[in-house]
Simulated scan of single mutants.
Amino acid sequence: MTETQPRHALVGRNSWKTVRTLLRKIRTKSSSSDRPRSSTIQDVKQDSTTTIDESANVSVAEFTIPNIQKALVVARKGEYEIRHDFPMPTVGDDEIMIRSHYVGLNPIDWKSVDYNFCLPEFPWVTGREMSGTVAQVGSGVKHFKEGDPVWTSTYYKDVRAGCFQEYVVVPSHTVLPIPSTVPFEAAACLGVAALTASMTLWKWLGVPIPWSTTDDAEEQWLLIWGGSTVTGQFATQIANFSGIKVVTVNSSETRSLSECLGATHVVVRDGKTDKQLVEEIRAVTNGRITRAIDLVGPKTAALALDSVSKSDPVAFAPLAMMSSSQIVPDNVAVHTVEMKQFVLDKSNVRFTEELGRLLEDGKIVLPELHMIDGGLHSVQEGLGMLKRGNLRGKKLVVRM
């Protein structure tokens, strides 16, 4: 059943009677209360204000953290199950427990299950990004308190951090406050796409942060193959703020999207041969691309390598994988982007701080959201939509 709800429906109705009723509904096993429904929130712009639904308005102090929770688990190879008695995660001294309100869906979520990777054992909980409220803090955590609205990006090796469960536990340095300009539901797309775009550019590809100054007046070009992807949308804007010209490759349906986000030139791939695409990219940039990101796959990674400078040093991030047999030109450095470093290396928090400044200042246009109701019972439906593709730049977010 498909239903479109206005944004104002997420706000208000704050009586504690309503809240208690909602919490009972969240925890019930009734399939009728969990039936998937989807809706679309369009045009979440930089002037948006934080949206809080009635469950997000609940102070954690007003209810008791349960002994068990509901989780969508990968029970065995390629098979999901809803567990209503999944153990509650414990909280270490420097960790935070978050009660989930919104979960972002990403290609890695279905690929890891379909191809059986990033699953240390069975049953396991997947899911890499979410927004919610702090439910409990460890004894060593001083900068957050119960009830704070937050977002996070998680690491697959800790089952407590899998986002497809009602409560997640993560290291405190990976928990970020939701900027005042970011709607609660939109914060669920920051942990993968926004963080990947910013870290790829700033950490691996050497793009200067927007606040820094550079004496290098030489024209610089970044190629983004897959400009309409959510990661591509964030990367286009971040690079543009740093004074780097961006050329993206899109379908004709999403050309205007990348143009509106600041791409200097959009190459429309429809009806063109691979050779024509490469020739157009090189002609537009005068063969001066020194940074490139591929967000599609091994074939387009090869085309991206054909499009970059033949003489200047080039930094390339094949985010959607590259063939192990791919021949790489001598002037190209291929960077393996490991987003787990955000969790494993606390020094990478500086990148989320810079990202947070851009968001708080309202400089970044957020992606259009396609909201899916039904909680954990609707995650598989959403992953199926993601797998089929053609979302035209929309981000899938599940309302928990």
Rank of each mutant, 00 (worst) to 15 (best):
H370A: 08
D294Q: 08
A197P: 02
E79K: 08
S15W: 10
V379A: 07
G362W: 13
M385H: 03
L22A: 12
G297S: 10
A197E: 10
I289P: 14
Y115C: 06
E62G: 05
Y156G: 02
A315D: 02
S309R: 05
K145D: 03
Y80V: 01
D312H: 10
Q380I: 00
L176V: 13
S347F: 06
H143A: 12
G12I: 11
K29A: 11
S252Y: 07
T49M: 06
F86V: 12
E219C: 05
L366H: 08
G375L: 02
P66V: 01
V73S: 06
T64R: 15
N14C: 06
M199H: 04
P87D: 05
Q341T: 03
N390L: 11
T152K: 09
R27Q: 10
G297V: 00
E219T: 04
T336G: 08
I209S: 02
I108D: 13
G92Q: 03
T28I: 09
L386T: 14
T273Q: 05
Y167A: 04
Q233E: 05
E381I: 14
A302D: 15
Y80F: 15
T28D: 13
T181P: 09
V266K: 01
K203M: 09
L201V: 02
M199W: 04
G191Q: 13
E253I: 03
V141A: 08
E146T: 12
V11C: 12
D47A: 13
K245G: 00
N57P: 02
V249Q: 11
M321E: 01
S38H: 03
R399H: 15
R76V: 12
Q136Y: 02
E354G: 06
H143P: 01
G362R: 15
L355H: 07
S33F: 01
S112E: 04
V175C: 11
T213S: 14
T2V: 09
T290A: 11
R282V: 08
V58S: 13
C163F: 00
T285D: 03
A283G: 06
G147L: 03
